[in-house]
Simulated scan of single mutants.
Amino acid sequence: MSGGERALYGPLKGYHHETYVFPLPGEPGAPGRTRWKCREPRRNLFWFDRRCFRSEEDLVRALSGHITRIPDVIDVGEFGLQKFIEGRTLGSRFSFSDVIPDRLIDQIVELFEELSAIDPEKLSVERSCVPEDRPSDGDTAGFLERLICFTEKQVYERNAHRFGGLFQALGVGEGAFSHLRRNVPGMAARPFGLLHGDLHRENFIVDPQDRLWTIDWELAMVGDPLYDLATHLYLMRYRPDQADEVTRRWCQAVEQVRPGSSRGWEEDLPRLLAYKKAQSVFTDVIRAALAVDARSAALSWWPLIHAGRKVQAVLARAREALELEHVPTHWQVMEALRKWARKDAARERREADPSRP
């Protein structure tokens, strides 16, 4: 499709896909010509989030005309290509300690407003979740229960044979889910809508004209709109004063478009944030463990130090949500990861050669 390897740029950094960027052959060679993304799902991935739509490209097509700044999609042969948005990610321009400028906050709020205006039942996009796994419109308690159930069954229990001992060493066990389920009863009813599901700084692209584009829609779902705000606040890590401002403006925007969308947010936003903090523990512990390579005789210390720091921080943020008795120190986390990595490397060697003791 690219016409030659010299035109390729990539692979881009990303967890879910291997992505390459290139101009199509025959397009004008002048600077500023359009480049496109070809994405292939990575094999044997751990999925940490529920998925609702079978094809991200089909969803992005359906959202054209409803969401102001999303990539175009074209078909080249059997492949759907997304337009590559030229610019920089929001995360590369502003650190967690920075205040995001008002001109960009305005566009984030506009995105939430546009999402609220979409009737998900009118989107002609094939769903991947079975009807039995879809709470009825407004059943926010059922929606949160399905999120907890997915993390419990598909992330924790499904991988307990490999990572269960590591979670136990870090003080996280099956009881975590009973703690989270205490937040389910009493949720206020809110009309369901389309959620992006992953609105963080690396999924916002700021182009040279200071326009904010939203990319990576693979985790989009239908559900409680307050969950999209909770996910956004947790992942963006705004300064407290700006988080309060974004929450206030979100409430105003969604209520104008779909009344009732912010109902009960004062009580329910902390419940959803508690789930996000807990979910990140299971996500980041597994990812950090996989980043520690113990297959060689000498375990590299820098990845271990980096992974330990990340896991210790996510455990600290989730201490109240998971009702942890204590948060292990950085050194204790590193030691737990080191021991796990040694055992996992031994397991791999046994599976590769069953005759080994």
Rank of each mutant, 00 (worst) to 15 (best):
M1H: 10
G4P: 05
G4D: 11
L8H: 13
Y9C: 13
K13T: 14
G14S: 09
E18F: 07
F22Y: 11
P23T: 03
L24P: 05
P25A: 03
E27M: 11
E27S: 15
E27I: 01
G29P: 00
G29N: 01
A30Q: 10
A30T: 10
W36Q: 02
C38P: 00
R42A: 11
N44P: 07
F46D: 15
D49W: 08
C52G: 01
R54S: 05
D58E: 14
V60I: 06
V60H: 00
A62F: 05
L63Y: 07
H66E: 05
I67Q: 04
T68G: 10
V73S: 10
E78C: 13
E78G: 15
L81Q: 11
G87F: 05
L90R: 01
L90N: 00
G91L: 07
R93C: 14
R93K: 08
F94E: 10
F96D: 14
F96P: 06
S97F: 12
V99T: 08
I100K: 02
D106K: 13
F112G: 05
F112W: 14
F112R: 06
E114R: 15
I118R: 05
D119C: 00
K122C: 08
K122Y: 08
S124H: 11
V125L: 08
R127Q: 11
R127Y: 03
C129M: 06
S136I: 01
D137C: 06
T140Y: 11
T140G: 09
G142M: 09
K153F: 00
V155T: 02
Y156D: 02
F163R: 05
G164Q: 13
F167W: 02
G175A: 12
G175M: 07
H179S: 11
L180K: 03
N183C: 01
V184W: 04
R190G: 01
P191R: 09
F192S: 02
L195F: 02
H196G: 03
V206P: 02
V206E: 07
Q209V: 12
D210L: 15
D210M: 14
R211Q: 15
W213K: 12
W217Q: 12
E218A: 11
D224T: 11
H232C: 14
H232K: 04
L233F: 07
L233M: 13
L233H: 09
M236E: 08
R237S: 10
P240Y: 03
R248N: 09
V254G: 13
S261I: 03
R271D: 01
R271P: 06
L273T: 04
Y275C: 04
K276L: 03
K276I: 03
K276D: 11
K277M: 03
V281N: 05
F282G: 02
V285M: 06
V292M: 08
A298P: 00
A307N: 00
A307L: 00
G308H: 01
R309K: 08
L315D: 01
A316W: 12
A318G: 10
R319K: 15
E320W: 07
E320M: 05
L322Y: 08
H330Y: 13
M334H: 09
A336F: 08
L337H: 03
A341H: 10
K343F: 10
R349M: 09
R350N: 00
D353N: 14
